[in-house]
Amino acid sequence: MTTPETSDRILDDKWDVVLSNGIVKTSLGFGAGVLASVILFKRRAWPVVFGAGFGAGQAWSEGDNIFKNSYKLLQYEDVPETKK
């Protein structure tokens, strides 16, 4: 996780990480679903939907953890120094 430049950018940085993670995980799930659909399930649609949903759900769960843990870390750790 990158260090935020200023404190007012903390949430924006978290959102960047969460959204990029969501895109990556959903794409991976979608790709795996397409492969499974083509190779195993005779080009049915449900493996694609299942894979994409699985990736999106995983990304959502990780995003939740990122937001929840970030507030706790801010309570325990020093806020980073202001940019010069």
Binding site: D8, L11, D12, V18, G63, D64, F67, K68, Y71, K72
Partner: peptide, 25 residues
């Protein structure tokens, strides 16, 4: 100027409870 940049951020996060997840934000 910095406060003008900070003001919308403060307003958006004003209703977030501590420890909230994506839904809360």
């Amino acid at each position: 100027d910095r406060f003008q940049t900070l003001e919308p951020e403060i307003r958006r996060s004003s209703l977030v409870r501590p420890g909230a997840g994506i839904t809360g934000h």
